[in-house]
Amino acid sequence: MKNKLKIAFYGSSLVSAYWNGAATYYRGIIKELSRLGHDITFYEPDAYERQQHRDIPDPEWATVVVYDNNEESAFKVLAEAAKADVVVKASGVGVFDELLEEQVLKLRKENQLIIFWDVDAPATLERMTLNPEDPFRNLVPQYDMILTYGGGQPVIDAYATFGAKRCIPIYNALDPETHFSVPEEEKFKCDLAFLGNRLPDREARVEEFFLKAAAQLPEQTFKIGGSGWGDKQMPTNVEYIGHVYTKDHNAFNCTPKAVLNISRDSMAKMGFSPATRVFEAAGAGACIITDYWLGIDFFFEPGKEILVAGSGDEVAQILSQLSVEEAKAIGEAAQKRVLEHHTYAHRAQEADQLFQAHFQFTNTSAV
């Protein structure tokens, strides 16, 4: 018999994508887990002005608890985990991460499933590798399982070296109710668009794959969205449009001739880590040009469903030869692929099977 589970989820934010790239991943997975009958409470701190930049109201499919950005409030919400069957600590909450990671293990109740859900596994693994004193190294073997946003076998193997009992990638995907084709909007019209916050391990690749390509194609138009790029020097044919709210993502993705995916350094090195925006853009029927990373063909067929570039020069070459008709055909093929194989309903089923198998094994062992 299938268990209907109470899940306590400690993450960065479910209601705001502001400085929070994992928001749509959380929303997609949690909404579909709710549809499978589970009762989810999402605990998020009032930090980084996320609550002032909400882009969805509290959803029907999860209870959202916003706690004050102090240690006392963090302990209060940790105490509520006692009521849960499954306790999830996600990476990158942004405040009190070490406390949360330690305390969900210290406060565990009998028969609870305790999960670390890593939405930036390459960065976590690199951090632990470089710092032998990293406190998370001692906690990894204590979690019942590590779920990751991506990374494939390289991430599984790397977590195993730190003593993880189990590490399973639950890849990001498409929520077809949120990301889909919409009419074009004039403010997003251009030849190539890129959306991503300015982060230290992304900036050099943005310079290479986006700004360098723009400089080589002065007759074409480029737009960049996301937080933090305001003081960045860019070619004159690049327009910075600031933070793009999730309600505008569909138009941002399907209006330009093509959109660019640029992996962060750590994600590109590890491979098998498609950004959430790849699936979102595909869901909107966008023609995607991506930087190369190992495992692309696990998700899309290069040349038919996605275009792959190894450098800024190659981005410029692709763009200079890409017709509107070709771009449209590639976008339609990508959209078909994600709807058939890469939705959050698919991913939630994978997570649910792991949960059910754990409790079935636990119950059987107790007999």
Rank of each mutant, 00 (worst) to 15 (best):
H243V: 13
I170T: 01
F209I: 06
F162K: 02
A193Y: 05
H346I: 08
F279H: 04
A81R: 14
L211K: 00
S273L: 00
S73H: 13
E98Y: 11
V77P: 02
F279Q: 03
Q233Y: 02
I241D: 00
R166Q: 15
F194Y: 07
P256Q: 02
L113R: 00
L113D: 04
F96T: 09
A309V: 07
I7H: 06
N20F: 09
A84Q: 04
Y240I: 10
H179A: 06
V64Q: 00
T124M: 14
P235C: 05
A251W: 05
G37K: 04
A345F: 06
L217I: 07
Y245T: 14
I56V: 15
L130E: 13
W117D: 10
S34Q: 03
F180M: 07
L294P: 04
R54L: 11
T63N: 14
N253K: 07
L199E: 12
D248C: 10
F359V: 05
A74Y: 05
E72F: 12
L105E: 08
V259A: 01
K257M: 03
E203Y: 15
D39N: 14
P218S: 06
I170D: 03
V206M: 04
A81V: 01
E350N: 03
A158I: 12
A251S: 07
T124R: 09
N172K: 11
L113Y: 09
A258I: 06
N172S: 09
S181L: 14
E80P: 00
I306P: 05
L217D: 06
A286F: 05
V66I: 13
